[in-house]
């Protein structure tokens, strides 16, 4: 289980995360990324975090409850 946190002060709306993991990330009307769901099992979130040009996405691996 991955917990996803976006630092919106860093986000510049490149939308790389929303392209890679559209079920988890979306770009809001202000042009910044938001998380649809705060937790996900999909390892694609790791690719999305790595692809963020601003390093605005933090993925924390949690033990499933």
């Amino acid at each position: 289980m991955y917990e996803i946190v976006i630092d919106r002060s860093l986000c510049s709306g490149f939308a790389a995360c929303a392209e890679l993991a559209p079920d988890v990330f979306e770009v809001d009307v202000g042009g910044k990324a938001t998380v649809r769901v705060g937790r996900s099992d999909d390892p694609t979130v790791l690719d999305a975090a790595a692809a963020c040009p601003m390093a605005a996405i933090q993925v924390i691996e949690r033990e499933a409850a």
């Binding site: 510049s12 490149f14 939308a15 392209e19 890679l20 559209p22 999909d42 694609t44 690719d47 692809a51």
Partner: peptide, 22 residues
């Protein structure tokens, strides 16, 4: 196109944002 990883669980990546948007 932006290189995309193989998605799991049958999740399809939406085919969008192929424009020049930054």
């Amino acid at each position: 196109r932006t290189p995309r990883p193989t998605t799991q669980g049958g999740t399809r990546v939406r085919d969008r944002d192929r424009s020049l948007a930054l």
